[in-house]
Simulated scan of single mutants.
Amino acid sequence: MRSLIAMYQRIGLVPLIIIGLILGVLIGWLAPSIGIALGLLGTLFVGALKAVAPVLVFVLVMAAISQHRSGNEVFVKPVIIMYMFGTFLAALTAVVASKLFPTKLVLINATLEQAPPADLQEVLTNLLLNLVANPVNAIAEANYIGILAWAIIIGFALKHASAATRTVVSDFADAISQVVKWVIALAPFGILGLVANTIAVTGFEALETYWRLLKVLIGCMLFIALVANPLIVFVKTRRNPYPLVFTCLRESGITAFFTRSSAANIPVNMNLAGKLGLHEDTYSVTIPLGATINMAGAAITINVLTLAAAHTLGIEVTFASALLLSIVATISACGASGVAGGSLLLIPLACSLFNIPNELAMQVVAIGFIISVVQDSAETALNSSTDVLFTAAADPKYAR
């Protein structure tokens, strides 16, 4: 058994994930019944990530702040600036792409179990209420805004605790980090199950009807991932950004693509940031925060689908309204849930800017769920990999 584990570790996580991906495609295609059964592996993997992530964030942030002393460098502010600028740039990219490649939708009737936010005020109100949520409930419900708020408050309070107490907190953080490493080591099996189940259930032709819409969405996300984000990193670091970009896409984006959850990918990003040698005081805050507010992919999804609805209905979109839409999408994307499909429920809010009736807006959301097997996966891969990318760009290791 030990020799097998040693061989498994020697191969490396990324090659094993690629092997799991290929096997998942083959099993889902050639033996759908087995693929569906293997879906349990994916469910268990995502469940483990989601279970450990809230505790990880709470403990690491609390430990980082309690151990921080004056003179220790942290680089949270520049990361947040890059998060917001990157999301706004993604929203503008979606506007331009929608103008160049207008798409008409075939609206359908659909019902949704979740009610979307009614307006921007409701989004902002929910964010503020999440800040003061009960800390136990925040951890249980994976409310990362609440988790961060309480971890920061308790961390500052613990700065005045005895050295022994702070050591216990630090040791507990190390223990949770080790648990995360164990979970991440099983990622290839989780990816195998997720891919096999997806191919078995949807097949390869499930998205042909909405191929044009997907091309616009994926094209925007690729532009942000391979052009805009590297440009932002270059401006910050004055170094070739692509080695770091490809590392983040490979080691964070691939896992996020299949888990389809920024929240579930937090442990993966924490592990990658540690491997890159980044400041723990910084990434223990910026990565969970990024899973909440760094939503370039969500901004693209909101704008592309909203403008497709406007084009379908013959609504003229002026430059001023497109700019306002980008601002609203940037702010609203920060309120997108860190789970699969979170951004889609904010589309009615954006549609309200063009007086599109809620009934039609909800049909657009339904279309979003139809294509979400690809759209949401690509969106999450962009969002989550960028969390590490911008955190690394602000770190002295990648500075000028």
Rank of each mutant, 00 (worst) to 15 (best):
S162L: 09
V285S: 01
A350T: 15
I152C: 02
C248F: 02
A94Y: 00
A63H: 07
Q121G: 02
A333G: 05
M84R: 01
E379P: 02
W211H: 12
C248L: 04
E113V: 13
A185E: 14
A161Q: 13
V61R: 05
G342T: 07
I34G: 00
T198S: 15
S98T: 13
A161K: 15
F101H: 10
E113D: 13
V76A: 12
I80T: 09
F369A: 04
F223N: 00
V227H: 09
A350N: 11
V96C: 09
Y83C: 11
G219K: 06
A366F: 00
G335H: 08
H160C: 05
A350H: 06
S385F: 01
S372T: 01
A336I: 01
N72Q: 15
M84S: 05
P230I: 05
K77E: 14
L44K: 04
L244V: 05
I22F: 10
V55N: 03
I327M: 10
A336D: 05
L186G: 11
I191G: 06
W29N: 14
L353E: 07
V195D: 02
F246C: 04
A264W: 05
N265K: 01
I80W: 04
L217R: 07
Y398V: 04
S385W: 05
R166Y: 04
N143P: 04
I191Q: 05
A140Q: 09
V235S: 03
I108N: 11
R400S: 12
V235E: 04
S66A: 15
L222T: 06
L158C: 11
V201D: 07
I367Y: 09
S372Q: 09
I18F: 13
K50T: 14
K275N: 12
N130L: 08
T255S: 12
K181L: 11
L344K: 03
T93L: 11
L30C: 02
V285H: 01
R400P: 12
C220K: 02
L313N: 05
L192C: 07
L13W: 10
L56G: 02
G28V: 01
A340D: 07
V304C: 07
V61T: 11
A64R: 06
L16E: 07
S326Y: 02
E359Q: 15
W211F: 15
I108Q: 10
Q114F: 06
E280S: 13
L345A: 05
I300R: 07
A378G: 01
M7R: 12
N355H: 15
V216L: 04
E141K: 12
T202N: 15
N240A: 06
L194M: 12
A64D: 03
A151G: 01
A173D: 06
N137S: 12
S384K: 00
